[in-house]
Amino acid sequence: MSTRAPASTLRSGRLAARSAVAAVAAGVAVTTVAFWLTPLQGRADFLLVAYLAGTAAYLAVAARTEGRRSVVDRLFAVLMVTAVGICLLALGSVLVYTAARGVKALDWYFFTHSMNGVGPRDDAGGAYHSIIGTLEQVLLATLISVPSGLLVAIYLSEYGRGRLASLVRTVVDVMVGIPSIVAGLFIYAFWVLGLGRGFSGFAAAMALSILMLPIVVRSSEEMIKLVPASLREAAYALGIPRWRAILKVVLPTASAGITTGVMLAVARVTGETAPLLLTAFGFDSIHNDPFSGPQSSLPLFVFSQASSAFGAAVDRAWAGALTLIAVVLLLTVAARLVTRRNRLV
């Protein structure tokens, strides 16, 4: 690879891959030497300085053979890869760390037993009651919020004009910002205390559906709006009434996107803890009926086990956290498989 200015105006120099590798290696080597000879120290410091030195050497070598435009291109490629790396690192470390700590208490016993009569120091007990609670509460919350949220989304995207529509839209936007504890407090004051219905999984589901509703409405509205007007017109031109066109053409076309929005909402509320403290309350034994009496859930399970000072309880907390991630992941994958057929092409 020559470093001379190229003769042709169309041709420009190109940095050889091995020069790039050599440059980065040189940067890292300089850093190593610097950390060895000078008072510089620390693992994180070393990584940061090595990263900066390697990048600088790489760009400097590139600048010798290539034009300004390609050096800037390389600079931004480095920045983007770095950003992606940081995001993946955060996600990966959460997953890996939870998995590593979680597998210790994770066995068949954990999935098939409750915490009934198990003390914090006992190396026994499981999350069966919490898994049941989470599944029931999230299912109920989904059953409440998805039909109503979809109807609001259809109203906003297909029919809503004027002041009522903008009022509804504003209310939904405000609802996105409701802190989850406030949703829990509302159900606690209104349902648990006010109507005297007491703690129950259903009360928790109502609090969760308050949090789910705005997400379902806004994401579904956007997805419905993405359906091309030409498909609606095609349906109208066949003499299909508007409501049927919405039901049979618009919604199926948008279904993949709507499902993604619903899954986001489900994922968001499955991990909610604060509103459940005031509504489901938590319970150590298996309680299958969500409509009366306190119930456990995975976030509450993790919360109560992690509050303990004993190793066995903390292990159970990690296993519960891992189970929680797995539940959300399974639901998401299942929803993807169901709607894969109906992709917008």
Binding site: P228, S230, L231, E233, A234, A235, Y236, A237, L238, G239, I240, P241, V249, P252, T253, S255, R341, N342, R343, L344, V345
Partner: peptide
């Protein structure tokens, strides 16, 4: 209007088959 459109059909500029 729905029965009018059943009697008078229409084909559009861009082909628009239902994707689902």
């Amino acid at each position: 209007p729905v029965s009018v459109r059943r009697t008078i059909g229409m084909v559009f500029q861009r082909p628009n088959p239902f994707p689902t």
